[in-house]
Amino acid sequence: MKPSTRRRLFRGVLYAIFVLAVVAVVLVADWGTIQTNFFNPDVAATLFPNVVLTAAKNTIVYTAIAFVGGLIFGLLLALMKLSPVGPYRWVATAYVEIFRGLPALLVIFGFAFAVPIAFDWRPPGGSAGAGLIALIVVSAAYIAETIRAGIEAVPPGQREAARSLGMNPSWTMVSVVLPQAFRIITPPLTNELVILIKDTSLLFIAGMALNERELTTFARDAVSQQANATPLMIAALMYLIITLPLTQLVAKLERHNKRGR
């Protein structure tokens, strides 16, 4: 058999398997049940407008708070990690290693229940507030590593040029190194943001009041009330509406960065 014939035959077999699989799924699936349980317009109608005005809004607000908090705290940790003072480096390194190694769920649980009981502490914003602090604590560990990598990726000549002009280390960092570092890490930081959007779903374990619920908690409650999975699908759709533009943005930024080099 000629190589070209063999290639064509192989590709034909692949197509055939695919078509068979699709046909099998279409024939076997119980479309009526799927529609009633997962894509039920009557159930979906009961979710609006709360799924947008409360749940999606809360998801976005929680993400924004955790991301901004994580950025500030992460920047501090990154600078500590690069500090000439040993103890700062050790503390930051230990922090990053510990909180990257723990499940976010466990940390949220700890901040929402264990810490308040142990120290008789009322977290600001109640359980949701405690959960958010936990998310900041966890995301800061990841963001710190990203920022540190970004700072180290700025060519040493940039720092040397600034210092040779008489700028002190702080101004050099603020005016020359950090702006370039953040440019370099915009794609991975956007990825952190996307991960954080999804991690807000873990806040359900903190237990939240009705108006504090984000998408996943909202959908879970609706699923158990209505004994129908449509709310999950609506929540999933909401997540995708929020995350897809961001992942597209990352892809675009990465293409842009490649061109700029």
Binding site: G157, E160, A161, A162, S164, L165, Q180
Partner: peptide
């Protein structure tokens, strides 16, 4: 000081 690689601030 003037460097071989210029070291202008690109941003």
């Amino acid at each position: 000081m003037v460097f071989q690689q210029f070291n202008l601030f690109p941003h």
